[in-house]
């Protein structure tokens, strides 16, 4: 595959999806009709899922669609229906101008920071294994066999260390499995903690909404 061509396709896709996400979010925060705003929110989530795919986080894209679009957006719509406050809708409060200024400033600062930071200059890796250190210095695209060209392929510091083969370390081509493995091995504690969190959330929601004696 031609790197340049691949790049431009990815780029165009990226900008289109980003535009959809941003536009949908703007609609969310500016519409007075809350129901329409909820729908635009779902659209925004979809766009973000697309963005995830472009960023080669396929597992997460699917999770995004399942959880955000499939569950959270529905939940929000249900809540809107239960709270029959339609006329009120998405009214603005007295902080409109201040909030707009602050948000704009914060966003501008973040953009400024991200454009002026040197992301290739990460700390030197202190490992006794020199090969590993050499292998992982700087930005590194481990999926050497990736069909979609990427300019960072030029920035591989050293060739992959000995004994390592492309398929073995093609993590990005199998992110689901890798993530699953990580859950079991390195992130097992947060995994368990998050399950406790979900349990607590469920119990809490039920406790909140149970009405004494009447229908819940």
């Amino acid at each position: 595959m031609n790197g340049v061509e691949g790049s431009s396709v990815t780029d165009v896709a990226f900008w289109v999806v980003s535009a959809i996400a941003i536009a949908a979010s703007i609609m969310v925060v500016t519409l007075r009709d809350i129901f329409r705003a909820a729908l635009f929110l779902a659209l925004s989530f979809l766009a973000v899922a697309g963005l995830y795919i472009l960023l080669r986080a396929e597992f997460l894209a699917v999770v995004q669609i399942l959880v955000y679009v499939g569950a959270i957006s529905i939940l929000i719509v249900f809540a809107i229906v239960l709270v029959r406050d339609m006329p009120g809708g998405g009214k603005d409060n007295h902080l409109k101008v201040v909030a707009a200024t602050v948000a704009a400033l914060l966003g501008a600062l973040a953009i400024f920071v991200s454009y002026n930071s040197d992301f290739t200059n990460l700390d030197a890796l202190e490992s006794s294994n020199a090969d590993v250190a050499a292998a992982l210095t700087g930005t590194y695209d481990l999926d050497a066999s990736n069909a979609v060209g990427d300019e960072y392929e030029d920035q591989i510091a050293v060739a992959p260390p000995e004994g390592a083969e492309g398929t073995e370390i093609g993590i990005f081509s199998n992110s689901t499995g890798s993530i699953g493995g990580l859950f079991i091995r390195d992130f097992v504690l947060p995994f368990e903690a998050v399950s406790v969190l979900l349990l607590a959330a469920m119990i809490g929601a039920l406790a909140l909404l149970r009405q004494r004696g009447e229908e819940s």
């Binding site: 902080l95 201040v98 909030a99 602050v102 948000a103 400033l105 914060l106 600062l109």
Partner: peptide, 9 residues
Amino acid sequence: GAVASAGAV
């Protein structure tokens, strides 16, 4: 929240 964000800025 607005004040906090402004402070963060």
